[in-house]
């Protein structure tokens, strides 16, 4: 197990290094100039050039790259060109929101996806199954921003049950923050539950036809016991992979959802940074998100062992 973890940690370092190089290149290859954006459209080229020099953007790219690598090596992601603070601090300020949003969305996706998938498989061919299939197909086709705008219109504007946007007022507690996250989490979680429904259903159908399930039924185990103790646990292995991938997808989906709901999360930070060409923020944020992706994959691999005793590292 430890050897396995050490091997994966080594792989993580290599992946992160590659990501660092790729992100730096992409950020600089895309045209656009943070100094021009910062100064506004009235600025002349001379004003822009002066600010570029002040920000160190006039230095040759290899020099900028070496400085960037040196920063990363000391776990420093640099300073935002716009936000007047270190990238790590900016990320930290937004991490709570995005983490909560991702967890709530994942919770909604799993709480809907797994039970509906199981029932759909057990009641294969029934009206419930067909309805679940239709709803999941529809859910998979709905973009989260559209779901978000529709939820805002009906639940926030017309009924004022939830806030339209934002993260609450200064001094708000966790409860009020969570209240602001309900609609975004539903907008993000609902379309993603469709994939989990499909995978759970398929996986359960496979397992329900296995010999050991037939044996359990023949032994007289109650139908609920067969599903819960024999079929469900084994069916969960491929579903776990999908849930892991869904969580990773939710982080990406948060970019759009946070923009629609005006949430000051990591997704919004990335969008703003790209529009402003805030290179340190683009680089630092993508680096951290890539690291989280890799860690989620590792966690999912480790969970296999917990779910299936045959899996050993």
């Amino acid at each position: 197990m430890l050897r396995y973890l050490a091997r994966r940690a080594g792989g993580l370092v290599v992946v992160m290094l590659l990501v660092a190089v790729i992100v730096f290149i992409i950020a600089r290859v895309v045209p656009g100039d943070p100094a021009a954006v910062m100064l506004g459209s009235s600025a002349t080229p001379a004003d822009v050039a002066a600010l570029r020099a002040q920000l160190g953007l006039d230095q040759p790219l290899p020099v900028q790259f070496l400085l960037y690598l040196r920063q990363i090596a000391s776990f420093d992601l640099g300073n935002s060109l716009f936000l007047n603070r270190p990238v790590l601090q900016a990320l930290g300020e937004r991490a709570q929101l995005t983490t909560l949003l991702t967890l709530m969305s994942a919770g909604i996706a799993v709480l809907i996806g797994v039970p509906v998938g199981v029932i759909s498989a057990v009641k294969r061919g029934s009206v419930i199954d067909q309805a679940a299939t239709a709803v999941s197909m529809l859910g998979a086709s709905l973009p989260s921003f559209w779901v978000g705008l529709t939820l805002i219109e009906y639940l926030a504007v017309r009924h004022a049950w939830f806030p339209v946007a934002g993260w609450g007022d200064p001094g708000d507690g966790l409860l009020a923050h969570l209240h602001h996250l309900v609609l975004p989490a539903v907008a993000l979680g609902l379309p993603n539950s469709a994939l989990i429904i499909r995978f759970t259903r398929t996986s359960m159908l496979d397992v329900l036809q296995d010999d050991y399930v037939r044996t359990a039924r023949a032994k007289g185990v109650r139908p609920l016991g067969v599903v819960v103790h024999h079929a469900f646990r084994n069916a969960m292995i491929p579903v776990l992979t999908v849930i892991g991938l869904t969580v990773a997808t939710l982080i990406g989906g948060a970019i759009v959802t946070e923009t629609v709901f005006g949430l000051p999360g990591v997704g919004n930070l990335i969008v703003s940074a790209v529009l402003r060409r805030d290179y340190p923020v683009i680089q630092g944020t993508l680096l951290v998100i890539s690291g989280i992706y890799v860690l989620i994959n590792l966690a999912v691999d480790l969970l296999y062992a917990a779910v299936d005793p045959r899996v050993r590292f």
């Binding site: 705008l149 805002i152 219109e153 926030a156 504007v157 004022a160 806030p163 339209v164 946007a165 934002g166 923009t259 629609v260 709901f261 005006g262 969008v271 703003s272």
Partner: peptide, 17 residues
Amino acid sequence: VPVPNPSTRVDGILSGE
């Protein structure tokens, strides 16, 4: 409050936020 999405700005003023 920065609200880049224009329809969210409209929804927010309509809801009283």
